[in-house]
């Protein structure tokens, strides 16, 4: 790992944290995961940095949250949050970033729709697959209700997929050697 890799990893940790400073849209009294811009950081880390560096960036992010740094949206942090209803989604982030990075970098010449599809796969499908069962168990909700709730998040997540796709492709044109 070069100095540049370390700096890029740090940059995407900071970016994910900075996205958390945008006010989240919370509902159902915090019993449900709030809609935040932070998963955009997950999608960007993966699609820009690739599987290894993107995955490490989010792993470091989650470790810092667990250590008590208030990096999650709304200034949340600490071990407690990871045990809450949205814990599964947050713990899934490193995996999602790695999956996105793997797919996007393996198909670097794919057109914009395919890139978007791959980001959606890692950033929505994989994240929901890991986060929803966790929410169902921790929140005593049951899988069917959890699934129904998550439908409300899909439009917001699709917007983030579009943003991540456009930004990642733009960055790759501006800096082919990232």
């Amino acid at each position: 790992m070069t100095i540049k890799d370390i700096v890029y990893i740090a940059l995407f940790v900071a970016l994910t944290a900075a996205l958390g400073l945008m006010p989240p849209i919370a509902f159902a009294g915090g019993a449900l995961p709030p809609i935040t811009a932070q998963s955009l950081g997950v999608m960007l880390a993966g699609s820009v940095l690739g599987a290894k560096r993107g995955g490490y960036a989010l792993l470091l992010f989650v470790a810092l949250v667990a250590m008590g740094f208030p990096l999650l949206s709304g200034g949340r942090g600490g071990f407690g949050v990871l045990l809450g209803t949205s814990g599964g989604f947050i713990l899934a982030w490193p995996i999602c970033a790695a999956v996105i990075g793997h797919l996007v970098h393996k198909n670097a010449n794919a057109n914009i729709w395919v890139t978007g599809g791959m980001i959606a796969f890692g950033g929505i499908l994989v994240m929901y697959t890991l986060g929803i069962p966790w929410m169902a168990v921790v929140g005593k909700l049951g899988l069917d209700k959890s699934l129904a709730i998550m439908v409300a998040y899909i439009p917001g997540d699709l917007v983030k997929v579009v943003l991540a796709t456009v930004i990642a492709r733009g960055l790759r044109r501006a800096y082919p050697n990232i």
């Binding site: 940059l11 940790v13 900071a14 970016l15 944290a17 900075a18 470091l60």
Partner: peptide
């Protein structure tokens, strides 16, 4: 990496 990340947040 941690030090850098903490420094980058306000800069971003």
């Amino acid at each position: 990496a941690i030090s850098l990340a903490l420094r980058f947040i306000p800069v971003l």
